[in-house]
Design a protein around this nucleic acid. Structure first.
Length: 272
DNA sequence: AGTATAACCTGTCTGC
DNA sequence: TGCAGACAGGTTATAC
């Protein structure tokens, strides 16, 4: 489900909604082991009960909840994970963080791929290094030089742009949309782009991610904001899951192929 | 070093 | 209506 813009939209809302609230209790349901791995939830409950949420931030596609008890929760929603702030328990709920003064925070996830890690404050500064999170494509500091470095690879473009250890925040939707907008064919090798093409791709990535965040992400099926709202960027998609439809630029049929286990969508006329 | 494939899961959609 | 198969926003392990 969530790529960088979706995670950022969730983080922005959660930050506004839950910073300062106090944790009363943790409730787990089915698939707790898949969410938490080896973590002992009773132990975690003892560590977190009574603490306050002091920050909500993002590292790559991870949502970071910073607690006053020097605990950091790193949540990755994978494909279908959702965060909700509401009073009732949502469908497919895997974790409820009960909060004082109103609605509770829930993590729901149909496919149970989502994960939640617990980090001590003293270790958290090494989070990005340990996770090998690459340069953040959503950051204002993401530069043309950064992209040039990322593209020093013989691999195909989607494989590189989806590699979160090289560049973080892009997912399959935005990779396909950015390559279309840049006029670059998705089955080219990353290290065969000209300087002008890299420059164009950099500008497009910055522009599209910014617009996606302004529109609060792309909802196909599962992605929701913490209040339950859907995103708005789906109406701007030009190639993603539009195979068979006419290209918005040239009217030729949008093609679809498999690459690296993922579907790529493109216009073979407009993307060289 | 690259690529491809399967795996982790459940739900939805398409075609027969 | 039913059933099989493909497919899904992500990531990781394993196999050529």
């Amino acid at each position: 489900m969530p790529e960088g813009p979706e995670v950022q939209s969730i983080v922005t809302d959660l930050h506004n909604l839950i910073v300062g609230r106090r944790i009363l209790d943790l409730v787990t349901y089915d698939y707790t082991r898949r969410l938490f791995g080896e973590i002992d939830v009773d132990c975690l409950r003892d560590k977190t009960a009574g603490s306050k949420i002091v920050g909500v931030t993002r590292r790559g596609k991870n949502i970071i909840l910073q607690l006053s008890s020097d605990v950091y929760l790193a949540i990755h929603l994978r494909m279908t994970g959702q965060m909700f702030l509401r009073s009732d328990v949502p469908k497919y709920c895997r974790l409820t963080i009960k909060l004082d003064g109103g609605e509770d925070l829930h993590l729901a996830d149909v496919r149970t791929f989502a994960t939640c890690e617990v980090w001590d404050a003293k270790d958290f500064e090494t989070f990005e290094a340990q996770k090998k999170i690459g340069v953040d494509a959503l950051s204002p500091s993401f530069s043309l030089r950064d992209l040039k470095t990322v593209l020093q690879s013989k691999r195909l473009l989607p494989a590189v742009l989806l590699d979160q250890t090289k560049i973080s925040g892009l997912g399959n939707i935005y990779v396909n949309e950015c390559l279309f907008e840049s006029g670059i064919h998705p089955l080219r090798k990353a290290n065969n782009l000209s300087c002008d093409e890299i420059k164009k791709l950099h500008q497009v990535i910055v522009k599209i991610l910014k617009k996606a965040i302004e529109n609060r992400g792309t909802t196909f099926s599962d992605y929701r904001l913490p209040g339950g709202e859907i995103g708005g960027f789906q109406k701007y998609l030009k190639v993603f899951r539009r195979d068979g439809e006419p290209c918005v630029k040239c009217k030729q049929s949008i093609k679809r192929k498999k690459s690296g286990g993922r579907s790529v969508f493109y216009c073979s006329n407009c993307q060289i």
